[in-house]
Amino acid sequence: MSGIVLTIRDPAGPPIDMSGVLPERLAEGGREALAGLMLVRGRGRHRLDALFTLEDSGPAGTLILHPGGAVLDGVGTGMNTGEIRVEGECGAYAGSAMRGGTLAVAGNCGAFAAAEMSGGRLRVAGDAGDFLGAPLAGGTRGMSGGSVVVMGNAGDRVGERIRRGLIAVHGRVGSLCGARMIAGTIVVGAGCGPDPGQAMRRGSILLAQAPDAVPSGFVDGGMNDWLFLDLMRKELIDGGAWPSGFPTAGTRARRLIGDRSAGGIGEVLVLAEA
Protein backbone atom coordinates (compact mmCIF):
# COMPACT_ATOMS: atom_id res chain seq x y z
CA MET A 1 0.00 0.00 0.00
CA SER A 2 1.38 3.36 -1.00
CA GLY A 3 0.82 6.71 0.60
CA ILE A 4 -1.87 9.16 -0.40
CA VAL A 5 -1.46 12.59 -1.92
CA LEU A 6 -4.31 14.98 -1.10
CA THR A 7 -4.61 18.03 -3.34
CA ILE A 8 -7.08 20.77 -2.55
CA ARG A 9 -9.83 21.22 -5.14
CA ASP A 10 -10.79 24.78 -4.26
CA PRO A 11 -8.17 26.75 -2.37
CA ALA A 12 -10.44 29.73 -1.89
CA GLY A 13 -12.82 29.65 1.02
CA PRO A 14 -12.83 29.30 4.77
CA PRO A 15 -10.32 27.18 6.69
CA ILE A 16 -10.67 23.42 6.74
CA ASP A 17 -10.41 21.50 10.01
CA MET A 18 -8.02 18.64 9.18
CA SER A 19 -7.83 17.22 12.68
CA GLY A 20 -9.18 13.78 11.73
CA VAL A 21 -6.96 13.26 8.70
CA LEU A 22 -4.22 11.06 10.06
CA PRO A 23 -1.93 8.34 8.73
CA GLU A 24 -3.43 5.86 11.20
CA ARG A 25 -6.82 6.31 9.51
CA LEU A 26 -5.20 5.35 6.25
CA ALA A 27 -3.52 2.34 7.85
CA GLU A 28 -6.73 1.19 9.53
CA GLY A 29 -9.31 1.74 6.82
CA GLY A 30 -7.40 2.35 3.66
CA ARG A 31 -8.08 4.92 1.00
CA GLU A 32 -11.86 4.54 1.15
CA ALA A 33 -12.03 5.27 4.87
CA LEU A 34 -9.90 8.31 4.34
CA ALA A 35 -12.00 9.54 1.42
CA GLY A 36 -15.16 9.23 3.48
CA LEU A 37 -13.98 11.30 6.42
CA MET A 38 -16.26 14.25 7.11
CA LEU A 39 -14.41 17.54 7.38
CA VAL A 40 -15.66 20.89 8.57
CA ARG A 41 -15.09 23.85 6.30
CA GLY A 42 -16.66 27.04 7.41
CA ARG A 43 -20.24 26.18 8.34
CA GLY A 44 -20.44 23.08 6.19
CA ARG A 45 -19.47 19.45 6.55
CA HIS A 46 -17.95 17.78 3.53
CA ARG A 47 -16.52 14.44 2.60
CA LEU A 48 -12.76 14.59 2.29
CA ASP A 49 -12.89 13.56 -1.34
CA ALA A 50 -15.20 16.45 -2.02
CA LEU A 51 -12.53 18.86 -0.84
CA PHE A 52 -9.43 17.05 -2.03
CA THR A 53 -8.38 14.86 -4.90
CA LEU A 54 -6.78 11.62 -3.76
CA GLU A 55 -3.87 10.03 -5.52
CA ASP A 56 -1.93 6.92 -4.55
CA SER A 57 1.66 8.00 -4.25
CA GLY A 58 4.55 8.29 -1.85
CA PRO A 59 5.84 5.95 0.85
CA ALA A 60 3.38 3.63 2.60
CA GLY A 61 1.57 5.20 5.52
CA THR A 62 2.40 8.72 4.41
CA LEU A 63 -0.06 11.51 3.79
CA ILE A 64 1.11 14.27 1.49
CA LEU A 65 -0.99 17.42 1.51
CA HIS A 66 -0.99 20.03 -1.25
CA PRO A 67 -2.99 22.86 0.31
CA GLY A 68 -2.55 25.34 -2.50
CA GLY A 69 -3.59 28.59 -0.89
CA ALA A 70 -6.17 27.01 1.40
CA VAL A 71 -5.93 27.35 5.15
CA LEU A 72 -5.68 23.91 6.74
CA ASP A 73 -6.12 23.97 10.50
CA GLY A 74 -5.32 21.11 12.84
CA VAL A 75 -3.07 19.19 10.49
CA GLY A 76 -1.67 16.22 12.42
CA THR A 77 -3.69 16.95 15.55
CA GLY A 78 -3.57 13.93 17.82
CA MET A 79 -1.32 12.06 15.41
CA ASN A 80 0.18 8.85 16.81
CA THR A 81 2.20 7.30 14.04
CA GLY A 82 3.22 7.59 10.41
CA GLU A 83 4.11 10.73 8.54
CA ILE A 84 2.32 13.77 7.17
CA ARG A 85 4.05 16.08 4.72
CA VAL A 86 2.52 19.43 3.92
CA GLU A 87 3.79 20.83 0.63
CA GLY A 88 2.76 24.34 1.48
CA GLU A 89 1.46 26.22 4.48
CA CYS A 90 -0.51 25.12 7.51
CA GLY A 91 -3.04 27.03 9.51
CA ALA A 92 -3.34 26.89 13.26
CA TYR A 93 -2.92 23.86 15.54
CA ALA A 94 -0.48 21.94 13.33
CA GLY A 95 0.68 18.93 15.33
CA SER A 96 -1.27 19.95 18.40
CA ALA A 97 -1.72 17.11 20.92
CA MET A 98 0.53 15.03 18.70
CA ARG A 99 1.75 11.82 20.36
CA GLY A 100 3.97 10.24 17.73
CA GLY A 101 4.97 10.16 14.09
CA THR A 102 6.37 12.97 11.98
CA LEU A 103 4.75 16.10 10.63
CA ALA A 104 6.82 18.03 8.11
CA VAL A 105 5.61 21.40 6.87
CA ALA A 106 7.33 22.89 3.85
CA GLY A 107 5.98 26.37 4.49
CA ASN A 108 4.83 28.34 7.50
CA CYS A 109 2.36 27.26 10.14
CA GLY A 110 0.02 29.28 12.31
CA ALA A 111 -0.55 29.64 16.02
CA PHE A 112 -0.64 26.79 18.51
CA ALA A 113 1.57 24.49 16.47
CA ALA A 114 2.66 21.53 18.65
CA ALA A 115 0.42 22.82 21.42
CA GLU A 116 0.17 20.18 24.14
CA MET A 117 2.29 17.85 22.03
CA SER A 118 3.53 14.79 23.93
CA GLY A 119 5.57 12.91 21.35
CA GLY A 120 6.67 12.70 17.76
CA ARG A 121 8.45 15.24 15.59
CA LEU A 122 7.27 18.46 13.99
CA ARG A 123 9.50 20.07 11.35
CA VAL A 124 8.58 23.46 9.95
CA ALA A 125 10.65 24.80 7.08
CA GLY A 126 9.17 28.30 7.38
CA ASP A 127 7.94 30.31 10.33
CA ALA A 128 5.64 29.35 13.20
CA GLY A 129 3.04 31.51 14.89
CA ASP A 130 2.43 32.30 18.52
CA PHE A 131 2.04 29.66 21.23
CA LEU A 132 4.35 27.13 19.62
CA GLY A 133 4.37 24.13 22.00
CA ALA A 134 2.21 26.02 24.48
CA PRO A 135 -1.04 24.91 26.13
CA LEU A 136 -4.20 25.10 24.08
CA ALA A 137 -6.51 27.94 24.98
CA GLY A 138 -7.71 27.35 28.52
CA GLY A 139 -5.18 24.57 29.04
CA THR A 140 -2.60 24.47 31.78
CA ARG A 141 0.01 22.16 30.28
CA GLY A 142 2.29 22.88 27.40
CA MET A 143 4.30 20.43 25.41
CA SER A 144 5.26 17.32 27.37
CA GLY A 145 7.44 15.43 24.91
CA GLY A 146 8.65 15.14 21.36
CA SER A 147 10.65 17.61 19.32
CA VAL A 148 9.88 20.67 17.24
CA VAL A 149 12.27 22.28 14.79
CA VAL A 150 11.36 25.56 13.11
CA MET A 151 13.80 26.73 10.47
CA GLY A 152 12.40 30.26 10.40
CA ASN A 153 11.06 32.53 13.13
CA ALA A 154 8.37 31.92 15.73
CA GLY A 155 5.96 34.18 17.53
CA ASP A 156 5.28 34.99 21.14
CA ARG A 157 5.08 32.56 24.02
CA VAL A 158 7.07 29.81 22.38
CA GLY A 159 7.20 26.84 24.76
CA GLU A 160 4.94 28.34 27.36
CA ARG A 161 4.45 25.86 30.20
CA ILE A 162 6.53 23.24 28.42
CA ARG A 163 7.22 20.29 30.69
CA ARG A 164 9.41 18.04 28.54
CA GLY A 165 10.74 17.86 25.01
CA LEU A 166 12.68 20.12 22.70
CA ILE A 167 11.75 23.20 20.71
CA ALA A 168 14.42 24.53 18.37
CA VAL A 169 13.81 27.75 16.44
CA HIS A 170 16.59 28.66 14.04
CA GLY A 171 15.39 32.21 13.69
CA ARG A 172 13.97 34.75 16.08
CA VAL A 173 11.24 34.33 18.67
CA GLY A 174 8.89 36.88 20.16
CA SER A 175 8.24 37.81 23.74
CA LEU A 176 7.77 35.53 26.72
CA CYS A 177 9.57 32.55 25.24
CA GLY A 178 9.44 29.73 27.79
CA ALA A 179 7.13 31.62 30.11
CA ARG A 180 6.01 29.46 33.05
CA MET A 181 8.22 26.71 31.72
CA ILE A 182 8.41 23.64 33.97
CA ALA A 183 11.24 21.73 32.27
CA GLY A 184 12.48 20.81 28.81
CA THR A 185 14.70 22.66 26.38
CA ILE A 186 14.10 25.60 24.06
CA VAL A 187 16.77 26.60 21.56
CA VAL A 188 16.65 29.96 19.77
CA GLY A 189 19.14 30.62 17.02
CA ALA A 190 18.65 34.36 16.47
CA GLY A 191 17.13 37.17 18.48
CA CYS A 192 14.82 36.66 21.40
CA GLY A 193 12.07 39.05 22.37
CA PRO A 194 11.65 40.39 25.89
CA ASP A 195 11.16 38.39 29.03
CA PRO A 196 12.17 34.84 28.13
CA GLY A 197 11.53 32.38 30.93
CA GLN A 198 9.20 34.58 32.91
CA ALA A 199 7.97 32.59 35.92
CA MET A 200 9.83 29.49 34.71
CA ARG A 201 10.53 26.79 37.31
CA ARG A 202 13.11 24.62 35.61
CA GLY A 203 14.35 23.85 32.14
CA SER A 204 16.80 25.47 29.74
CA ILE A 205 16.45 28.22 27.19
CA LEU A 206 19.51 28.38 24.94
CA LEU A 207 19.96 31.66 23.12
CA ALA A 208 22.44 32.72 20.49
CA GLN A 209 22.42 36.25 21.83
CA ALA A 210 21.21 38.11 24.88
CA PRO A 211 17.45 38.71 24.95
CA ASP A 212 15.92 42.14 24.52
CA ALA A 213 15.05 42.19 28.21
CA VAL A 214 15.28 39.69 31.04
CA PRO A 215 12.56 39.27 33.67
CA SER A 216 13.45 40.95 36.92
CA GLY A 217 13.44 37.62 38.73
CA PHE A 218 16.56 36.42 36.92
CA VAL A 219 20.07 36.65 38.34
CA ASP A 220 23.27 36.60 36.32
CA GLY A 221 25.21 33.43 37.11
CA GLY A 222 28.16 34.53 34.98
CA MET A 223 30.22 32.67 32.43
CA ASN A 224 31.17 29.05 32.81
CA ASP A 225 31.67 25.78 30.94
CA TRP A 226 28.61 23.61 30.52
CA LEU A 227 29.58 20.13 29.47
CA PHE A 228 26.03 19.12 28.63
CA LEU A 229 26.10 21.65 25.79
CA ASP A 230 28.58 19.42 24.02
CA LEU A 231 26.22 16.45 24.27
CA MET A 232 23.30 18.59 23.20
CA ARG A 233 25.17 20.02 20.25
CA LYS A 234 25.99 16.55 18.92
CA GLU A 235 22.42 15.41 19.34
CA LEU A 236 20.89 18.50 17.77
CA ILE A 237 23.32 18.74 14.88
CA ASP A 238 22.34 15.19 13.93
CA GLY A 239 18.67 16.19 13.99
CA GLY A 240 19.19 19.49 12.16
CA ALA A 241 18.13 21.36 15.26
CA TRP A 242 21.38 23.13 16.16
CA PRO A 243 20.94 26.67 14.83
CA SER A 244 23.58 27.98 12.49
CA GLY A 245 24.03 30.96 14.80
CA PHE A 246 25.25 28.75 17.59
CA PRO A 247 28.93 27.99 18.17
CA THR A 248 30.07 24.69 16.70
CA ALA A 249 32.63 24.08 19.43
CA GLY A 250 33.18 24.93 23.05
CA THR A 251 30.90 24.74 26.04
CA ARG A 252 31.09 28.26 27.44
CA ALA A 253 27.97 30.30 28.00
CA ARG A 254 26.55 32.98 30.25
CA ARG A 255 23.91 31.61 32.56
CA LEU A 256 20.97 33.55 33.85
CA ILE A 257 19.14 31.74 36.64
CA GLY A 258 15.47 32.17 37.33
CA ASP A 259 12.78 32.97 37.61
CA ARG A 260 13.64 33.46 41.29
CA SER A 261 10.48 35.48 41.78
CA ALA A 262 8.61 32.23 41.16
CA GLY A 263 11.09 30.09 43.10
CA GLY A 264 12.44 28.81 39.82
CA ILE A 265 15.92 27.45 39.10
CA GLY A 266 15.61 27.38 35.36
CA GLU A 267 18.25 28.86 33.12
CA VAL A 268 18.71 31.09 30.14
CA LEU A 269 22.05 30.28 28.58
CA VAL A 270 23.50 32.84 26.20
CA LEU A 271 26.00 31.04 24.02
CA ALA A 272 27.25 33.78 21.76
CA GLU A 273 28.87 35.60 24.65
CA ALA A 274 31.29 32.73 25.08
Binding site: R202, S204, I265
Partner: peptide, 11 residues
Protein backbone atom coordinates in the same frame (compact mmCIF):
# COMPACT_ATOMS: atom_id res chain seq x y z
CA UNK B 1 17.76 21.37 45.19
CA UNK B 2 19.91 23.11 42.56
CA UNK B 3 20.45 20.00 40.50
CA UNK B 4 19.02 20.00 36.99
CA UNK B 5 17.76 17.03 35.01
CA UNK B 6 18.42 17.30 31.31
CA UNK B 7 17.27 14.95 28.59
CA UNK B 8 19.44 14.86 25.50
CA UNK B 9 18.01 12.55 22.86
CA UNK B 10 17.03 9.35 24.57
CA UNK B 11 19.38 9.81 27.51
Amino acid sequence: GWQIAKRVGSR
